[in-house]
Design a protein around this nucleic acid. Structure first.
Length: 586
RNA sequence: CGGGGUGUAGCGCAGCCUGGUAGCGCGUCUGCUUCGGGAGCAGAAGGCCGGAGGUUCGAAUCCUCUCACCCCGACCA
């Protein structure tokens, strides 16, 4: 393609609202144009990149038996009510809705489990038709609390969503594993450093899930990785081993009360009782689990030096979300000012859970549910009922990992994919079944698998750019190579560039000829901004020594002067190497 | 949803406090010169100052309402 035939839109100024690299560069290079908050025009260059990502996704999903389909974006309320997800998404307000002229309400697809499950129910009659794996690449909608960061967090985006249907759990395990491997290959082929991590299933639900993260400092997610091990998990999900409390195994002492005027926090308590360290205290976090139809107050017991993980807690309570109690609520429900809550004589209204860090602690310090009073040498099970235990603690950097015990380190990442074992969550709720080998109706055992296609593009820029602009990995670059004659009025330069362009195109290279008439400096800056990683610069070297310049920005901006005759061979080789992305050799 | 901020030419901004009919840089168009790191000179086009109402002889500027956009927050006893 010729640059004069391409709608190129570049700006010398950064857009005023761009905070992160990918937003700034994609806006400046004309890949995106904002129409309103969280809604963008995808320009021709971005569309080419998205097309390449989609092609890789299609090839890899075909390899594991995925069949491409297209499902409606508008999905009626009644369908979603059958799975129970309508209320969930109304409560979290993440679904955009619209109505038709008859006032039927539709949700705009955030994902499509209901539709695809209904489709499978209607069209799959026998276990002999299974396993079945369907996917689509389509627009998805989320009413984000706060759209931001360019393409990273938007109201409307392109997603690949896939769904597997199996006869039983073993079948699901196989499908899930096939998708997991396909995902690893997809991101490798895109040329992105990505990794899978244990994750929380969130609103989608299900028994197991893994997120795929593109490593990038600007990532919104924090990942904890076991150094040298294979454990990696989102902080929302991560667990760790911590040193047991020094109070473990102590002989119980009698409980006693102490006046602690205006001493409310663990830090203040450590000052007030210098001989008692935080890991001998139990703090009591008061909150409520919000369900669709009710709210349940919870008291969470956790060791004084640890923090509650809200996501783990939400999952434990089964609620949609967790909210901290207000000071007024605490006074009303416990009769004490904030800072003095504890497990002893806690009002019955509270459901109670204790974090595993509390298990086995003896003679602990905690609040007394009375303003300005704490209790010492409390023993759970003796001074109050023994609570149930669960892991509701936030794992932290430096703690020992759960597998090998090696220290956890933090990396940041951008979530670009998420796979889930749904099991029969949707098929059972919606009555979607097939005739099993025994002739009886059997619910589908399902998995679902998403990739944020447009976010992959943004994540790639976030991961791979330099101070001059985007540096696309070759497999997803809008063009693999740009041939840029610096002075198009010069017949020799123009002729040589045209020749290279024709030969490269004939060799199967996706090449752009930058035949725009503009200053040499401006042209090179523009090409660098737009992210053309392999540049063939035809300039004064041609007349001087019969050479042109080839540079590969993906490998550190090395530039080499090559005789005109050697350029095609060299560039083709470079392109072939680049096309492999990060796939391992062989 | 709470707090703060901003809407003026395609992009980035000044002008507003102290009312007098709109300006700068970049970009765009025309011509000439230039031609390897965002060229120079000359000329030109482009904005009912987010919208509605009000005050005033007169409003980008003051007042009211409204819409949009941006940032921060929505937290642990």
């Amino acid at each position: 393609m010729r640059a004069t035939q391409l709608h190129i839109v570049t700006y010398r100024n950064d857009p005023a609202d761009a905070e992160i690299t990918s937003h700034r560069l994609m806006a400046r290079a004309g890949y995106i144009h904002k129409i309103s908050a969280g809604l963008y025009v995808y320009g021709p260059l971005l569309w080419r990149t998205l097309g390449k990502i989609k092609a890789i996704v299609r090839e890899e999903l075909s390899r594991v038996g995925g069949q491409e389909v297209q499902l409606p974006i508008m999905q009626d309320q009644a369908l979603w009510e059958r799975s129970g997800r309508w209320e969930v998404y109304q409560a979290s307000r993440t679904m955009l809705t619209t109505t038709d002229r008859r006032a039927t309400t539709f949700g705009l697809a955030p994902t499509a489990e209901e539709v695809v499950t209904d489709y499978a129910d209607a069209t799959v009659k026998s276990y002999k038709q299974l396993p079945l794996s369907l996917y689509q690449i389509h627009t998805k909608f989320r009413d984000e609390i706060r759209p931001r960061f360019g393409l990273m967090r938007v109201k409307e985006f392109i997603m690949k969503d896939a769904y597997s249907f199996d006869i039983d759990e073993a079948g699901l395990d196989a499908s899930y594993e096939a998708y997991r491997k396909a995902y690893v290959r997809i991101f490798q082929r895109c040329g992105l450093e990505a990794f899978g991590v244990d994750a929380d299933p969130g609103d989608i639900g299900g028994s197991g899930s893994m997120e795929f993260m593109v490593a990038a400092d600007a990532g919104e997610d924090a990942i904890l990785i076991e150094e040298g091990g294979d454990y990696a998990a989102n902080v929302e999900k991560a667990s760790s081993r911590i040193e047991p409390s020094p109070s473990q195994g102590e002989a119980p002492r009698p409980m006693r009360r102490e006046s602690t005027p205006n001493i409310r926090t663990v830090a203040q308590l450590e000052g007030f009782f210098p001989e008692i360290s935080a890991d001998r205290m139990v703090k009591t976090v008061l909150c409520r689990a919000v369900h669709i139809d009710r709210e349940v107050p919870w008291a969470v017991l956790i060791r004084g030096d640890q923090d509650v993980n809200e996501v783990k807690l939400r999952n434990h309570t089964g609620g949609l979300s967790i909210e901290m109690l207000t000071d007024a609520d605490i006074v009303k429900l416990t009769g004490a000012q904030p800072g003095f809550a504890g497990p002893v004589d806690l009002p019955e209204a509270f459901s109670v859970v204790a974090d595993e860090s509390v298990r086995g602690m003896a003679n602990v310090l905690c609040g007394a549910n009375e303003t300005d009073v704490h209790l010492l040498d409390v023993n759970l099970g003796r001074d109050c009922p023994m609570p149930e235990f669960a892991d509701v603690r936030t794992a932290r950097v430096g703690e020992a990992g759960p597998r090998t015990g090696a220290p956890l380190v933090e990396r940041r990442g951008i979530e670009v994919g998420h796979i889930f074992k749904l099991g029969t969550k949707y098929s059972a709720a919606m009555g979607a079944s097939f005739a099993g080998p025994n002739g009886k109706p059997t619910p589908f055992v399902m998995g679902c698998y998403g990739i944020g296609v447009s976010r992959v593009a943004a994540a790639a820029v976030e991961q791979q750019s330099d101070d001059r602009g985007i540096v696309w990995p070759i497999p997803i670059a809008p063009f693999e190579v740009v041939v840029a004659p610096l002075k198009v009025q010069d017949d020799a330069q123009r002729g040589a560039a045209e020749g290279l362009y024709t030969e490269l195109a004939a060799a199967g290279v996706d090449v752009l000829l930058d035949d725009r008439k503009m200053g040499a400096g401006a042209k090179m800056k523009d090409c660098e901004l737009m992210g053309f990683s392999i540049m063939v610069v035809v300039g004064r070297g041609l007349a001087a020594s019969g050479t042109v310049e080839v540079r590969n920005r993906t490998t550190g901006d090395e530039k080499v002067e090559l005789p005109l005759a050697d350029v095609v061979t060299s560039v083709v080789e470079m392109v072939h190497a680049g096309r492999r992305g990060l796939l391992p050799k062989g």
